[in-house]
């Protein structure tokens, strides 16, 4: 059974369509990233999954229940959520804040110290939040979402305002949660760092899902070319330029653009030439490029 199942889910704010007939299913242990511009509908989708707003039409089933129904309240303690922007009460300490949230969830207070360790806030645990830096607040928010080892973890922009080490830590935590079988839904526009850390991506554009699948699948589907860079001695370069005509040669390196589905045959051909090469780089299009391409491709259909 899927932990999240959305069936032709739509939301209108007045006449503005925030989400249009979204179909999406996320299984336990699956990690899905929602990517899209600001205003693409990411937050609206998350709010509907959390039962904070009612869909205009369509159906959402989260952990077996309609999120707007009364029984869903009992499910809530199994859900962890990090909002996009949250300013905790400045005059409470980190410990007091998490204690409050743990009590609401009915979670054990004994595990809280471990959570503070996990997000590197143990030393600052008893300081007032007014003394926290932006990154520390974000990490406190993350610790809050992890209270009670949730089965469904929803993180809205989890790495915003974090330094590289903390970002890495966030992804480690996400991995741990995944290994424990949690379903994870991340929304992000930090596309470059998401690339190899998630199972699937749903690309949202103007309230519609314009791409859904693993990064590799999306890459193949829209067939953006990879770039292959070959470094080789000068005489070898000449052989290369004869063999692959019309390709770019820059700074003593051959830069060859190659469609995703021809990548393997190209490399085979290259190796088959049996010439001395000093290095080969294969640059696949990043999630960012895929996203831009998807957004561009679907645009004309809207008008």
């Amino acid at each position: 059974m899927n932990n999240i199942e959305l069936t032709s889910l739509s939301k209108f704010y007045g006449k503005t369509e925030a989400l249009a007939a979204i179909d999406l299913a996320i299984a336990p242990g699956d990690c899905l990233a929602l990517v899209g511009h600001n205003g693409a509908g990411k937050s609206t989708l998350i709010k509907m999954v959390l039962g904070l707003i009612r869909p205009t039409s369509g159906r959402a089933v989260v952990m077996g229940h309609d999120p707007m129904s009364a029984p869903f309240n009992r499910i809530r303690k199994k859900i962890g959520f990090l909002p996009e922007q949250v300013l905790f009460q400045n005059n409470l300490t980190g410990w007091e804040t998490l204690t409050f949230y743990a009590r609401l969830k009915g979670a054990s207070l004994k595990d809280l110290e471990g959570l503070f360790h996990r997000v590197d806030l143990y030393e600052a645990m008893n300081n007032r939040i007014s003394t926290y830096s932006k990154g520390m607040r974000q990490r406190l928010g993350l610790a809050q979402a992890l209270i009670g080892s949730p089965e469904l973890l929803i993180l809205d922009e989890p790495t915003s305002g974090l330094d590289p080490a903390s970002r890495q830590n966030v992804y480690n935590i996400i991995n741990d949660m995944k290994r424990n079988g949690a379903t994870i839904l991340i929304s992000s526009h930090a596309l470059t760092e998401l690339d190899d850390r998630i199972d699937r991506v749903a690309v949202l554009n103007r309230g519609k899902i314009v791409g859904l699948g693993s990064v590799a699948e999306l890459r193949r589907e829209i067939n953006i070319s990879s770039e292959i860079i070959i470094h080789a001695p000068n005489d070898t370069m000449e052989i290369l330029s004869e063999h692959f005509e019309g390709k770019f040669f820059v700074n003593g390196a051959a830069r060859i653009s190659c469609p995703a589905n021809e990548k393997i045959s190209f490399l085979r051909e290259l190796i088959g030439l049996d010439i001395p090469l000093s290095d080969i780089e294969v640059n696949d299009p990043s999630l960012e490029e895929i996203f831009l391409e998807l957004a561009r491709k679907r645009e004309p259909e809207d008008e």
Binding site: K47, G51, L52, R76, K77, E84, V86, L87, F88, L104
Partner: peptide
């Protein structure tokens, strides 16, 4: 401050 949305995702 954004704490209202968070609070309402809790079992209250």
């Amino acid at each position: 401050r954004g704490t209202l949305i968070l609070l309402l995702t809790y079992p209250v």
